[in-house]
Each structure stands twice: as C-alpha cells, then as structure tokens.
Amino acid sequence: MRDLFIGLFGKPEGIMLFQLIEATQFTIYLSLLAFVLGGSVGALVTLARVMPSRAAQRVAIAYIWAFQSAPLLMLLFLFGLGVPRLLGLDVNPWIAASVALLLYTSAYLADVWRGALETIPQGQWEAARALGMRFLPTLWKVILPQAVRVALAPTVGFMVQIIKGTSLAYIIGFHDLMAIGKRWANAPVEGTEAFIVYPLMALIYFALCFPLSLLALRLERRLGKPSRMPKPNLA
C-alpha cells in the first residue's frame, strides 16, 4: 500500500498521503466509539429525562446541562491531562478521548432524543395509560416507533459533529488524522507545507462527513415531512 502511494505520488507526497489515510482509520474508530458509547449512555439519560420520577429527571437535566455547556476541548484536557495528573497514572489517549467524547455525545444526543420524544402528542401517552399500559411499554411500543422518525435525521447529522469533534483529540496525544497531518505540516519537508497538508485533510474530513450530511438531508426529506405524518390533532 505504502509503496503504491510512493509509486504514484513520489516522495514525500506519497508517504504523507499514505500516512494521512492510515491515520483516518483512527478518526473513524474514535467516531464510531464515541457514537456507540455516547448513544448508549445518551439513551439511558433520555430515559431518565422522560421518566415519571422527578429525581431521575433532575439528574438527567443536570447531566445534559453540565456536559452540553462544557466545551469538548475542555473535557479532553480534563480527561487527558487533568485526571491522569490527579490520579498520578498514565491514561491511554484512547480512553481519555473516548470518555470525553462519550460525555459530549451523550449529553447532546439525549437532548435531541428528548426533543424527538416530546414531538409526540401528550394524548398518545395518555391514551396508552388510560387503556392499561404502563410507562415502559408505552415508551417502547407507542412513543419510540413514532419518535424514531423524528430523531433519525438530526442523529445522523450529529455524527458529522462527532467526526469533526474527534479532531480535537490530537491535543491529548491521540494519533488520528489531525495529529498526523499537523506533524507533517510542521515538518520542514518540501511539498508538505501547511497550505498543502491542511486542504488535503479538509478533503478527507469532507469525504467522511459529506455522505452523512447527504443521508441526514434525505432522511429529513423522507421522514420529516409533515405531509407524511398523520394530522396532529387526530394523532
């Protein structure tokens, strides 16, 4: 692979390009990790946010507020630099970056999903309750199937934010596309100057994000159109 790139583009451009693309996989892994972990925790926070229990709601609201208002960069510093210092041990950048992105993603998705759940008319909850269904079956069988349509497009759209968010992880020593690219840009090698490397990186990020943006847009058109939904007053 590496030789193919060198063969095609020569040195050092071939090496640089290969390394950038190789590093991209870690951007993708970290994004997926953040999405899966953040989504799971986000689902739990969403559940707590809409549960009848006031205490659970308060905890969820506090969680969402705290991690939505904290800048991702600050979370990365905290878990990549602050916590290791506090505990006096080395924390793997993978773990630090995953935890920071998990908190960021879960808080954001919990808010998006709560919003989606709240678009379902209160009457649906009441009808299910007044016809013998308890909270969880109602959520699972009545509310969720309807809310998923609403939530899908913004959720896919948020994956773009996660991918871009992972680029900040270079700051705690995570070796992703951003970290490798930055190293090349700083290296005194002709042909890999900042004005060449960064546009290339932008192109790679674009290649990752654009399909997702397109998908989000199409989902929004397919599912989000009110005409496809039943009339609200009769739902």
Binding site: A127, A128, A130, L131, G132, M133, P145, Q146
Partner: peptide
C-alpha cells in the same frame, strides 16, 4: 377503566387491529 378521547389518540404507526390488541398484548 378504558377511555375514549376527543382526539381519538389512535397509535398512527399501528394498524386498526394492532391498535385494539396492543394493551392486551402488553399485559
């Protein structure tokens, strides 16, 4: 109890049959 609402509040994603059977199934 069983309640009939002014807005009907039928489950839009379920068929008529499923609308009637859902709560019984859950029990």
């Amino acid at each position: 109890i069983a309640m009939v609402f002014q807005s009907y509040a039928l489950y839009p994603h379920l068929t008529v049959k499923e609308n009637m059977a859902l709560a019984l199934k859950q029990e």
